[in-house]
Design a protein around this nucleic acid. Structure first.
Lengths: 322, 322
DNA sequence: GTGAAAGCGCTAACAT
DNA sequence: ATGTTAGCGCTTTCAC
């Protein structure tokens, strides 16, 4: 194995001091033109790369940002990660992904390892539970909470989605179209997002002057399967439904289509999330559109700041009628 | 800002040498029981974490693995990343994601930055083009190519998908069901995967004793939109189709469903990839099933090896009739 | 314009 | 069982 190319090895190679090499490589003015050029040329030839470890040892944090997500297959998280990865690339930051599966121990572990790395910052979707072990020491690492909020012993900025208005609007939209039996398929109220969305559905019903009928409210795991099963039941008992989750929405939509119905069809359908294909099924799928990219960009901007205020940044979802 | 907790700060705190602290923390036998316990206790209290940078400076590479992908929204890449992230978590490796958008400069840049980090390894889907600039110096970093192969100046292991057999089987399956006008919707032959899959489709036609009809072969960008548009055309000119791409398949399937057709006929449909919902649409969607998890696990295993042989690891896709 | 020294956090090697 | 030294690659500080 060839020894590492360092400023010292280049210096020896050129018969000069390693300091001159350092200066040449970091554009310091006090280097003779020819010396600088010789250094740059040799560095290029040998494939020199500055050691991030050595830089970190001198006090700088690593140019690393951690991203803690429950998973990355979920459309929302994938899109979020995608946008964040691009933004990080632009800011010359490394984005490291840590999947928690919503397990607090995995989360704690990931945070700990990010500190070993001296990561600059971490964007996390906090796991629902409360830690039984002590809170991790966050030291100098910037923390930013996404989607959910949890007390981690210090105030941190959060980036949230406010979808209550959009869900209420969805119900009102269906009611205005004449629907009286409007169902809801969403995540279990055990999740805070599940609670909020269900409450928004109820607000919508009330605003439309409709009363809730228990059999029309279907909650379960936030999976496509829940959406599929839910829609099957609602096809018999309701005339329309609102979905409260990405996977659930996709599952329900596929079930609707495979039942031979169109999304703009007699059965009223409002999805959740806005993958591109929603816009070209039939006349388009009405949906609660989440501004994923805006969320991701906000997150990256906050990461760039020296001392981001521990504020709540809420992004409003929009009901899109199609 | 509180100064960093280091072995030296703990040593001062305890009035002992930093070496004793180091030994205690790394389970070296030569430490008195009480001393060790005192150290561990204090370290825990202060939230000490070993500096990865310092460790890296001493010669160890960082416990970082880079993953270079065109994007992460694509179902296949998302699932691959998901599985890899879990496996890395288990192996105490950090997985850093770098999106190339199939741009060779982005790729080169990402590789360079991974070296600055002294990443242990990189799993990359090489971009199609050829680099005009010189090849990056890979130094001691292990490289593993995924899906595609490109000469990067040194032999490296590759993890590939062999889907030709499955695509041929798909055509034969449709032919056996009586279809004579079997279409194909796939990626442009500009991509190597596009070429291979199209060739497999042709092999299938030949094996079934059918001749190719140009209008039935639709290629384009590997997007859902290509699938949608393709299926619309084929609905008029063909009686069945095989898909050659994840996004294309999803797009075509949605188009099929929203045309009021069921995937189990009369129009013969074979998708590509096997997201969970394919199994519960109607009687199920026949598809070319790609063993994503096996690919990901193979990749992680190769990363663990000291000196993985530069072999080609091919995973065979299976045609699943449903 | 260039160089020498020191120190960031850590551990292997060598004292004691 | 514990302590001291040196050096990994780099930049800041202080000579020259």
């Amino acid at each position: 194995m060839p020894t590492r190319v360092t400023i010292k090895s280049i210096a020896r190679d050129l018969g000069i001091s390693h300091m001159t090499v350092s200066r040449a490589l970091s554009n310091h003015p006090n280097v003779q033109k020819e010396t600088r050029e010789a250094v740059l040329k040799r560095a290029e030839e040998l494939g020199y790369v500055r050691s991030a470890a050595a830089t970190a040892m001198r006090g700088d944090r690593m140019r690393i940002v951690g991203l803690l997500l429950p998973n990355i297959v979920n459309e929302f998280y994938a899109r979020f990660a995608d946008t964040m990865a691009m933004a990080c690339e632009e800011a010359a930051l490394h984005l490291t992904i840590h999947l928690t599966r919503d397990d607090i121990d995995a989360e704690t572990q990931a945070l700990r390892r990010l500190q070993e790395l001296q990561a600059r910052a971490v964007v996390m979707v906090p796991t629902p539970g409360q830690s039984q072990a002590g809170r991790p020491h966050l030291q100098a690492m910037r923390v930013l909470q996404l989607i959910r909020e949890r007390d981690i012993g210090q105030p941190v900025p959060t980036v949230q989605v406010d979808d209550a208005g959009a869900i209420r609007d969805a119900v009102l939209h269906l009611a205005a179209a004449g629907h009286r039996r409007i169902g809801y398929i969403g995540a279990t109220p055990a999740l805070s997002s599940g609670r909020v969305r269900l409450a928004a559905y109820r607000t919508g019903l009330a605003a439309a002057g409709l009363s809730e009928e228990a059999p029309l409210v279907i909650t379960g795991a936030p999976t496509a399967e829940t959406g599929r099963a839910g829609l099957h039941r609602l096809l018999e008992s309701a005339t329309a439904t609102v979905c409260g989750g990405f996977e659930i929405s996709n599952g329900a939509l596929i079930a609707l289509l495979s039942a031979g119905q169109r999304p703009d069809g007699p059965f009223g359908f409002v999805g959740y999330g806005d993958p591109s294909f929603y816009s070209w099924i039939g006349a388009g799928v009405s949906t609660v559109s989440i501004p994923v990219d805006a969320l991701a960009h906000c997150a990256v901007e906050l990461l760039q700041e020296d001392a981001p205020a521990p504020e709540r940044h809420a992004f409003t979802a929009r009901f899109v009628a199609r």
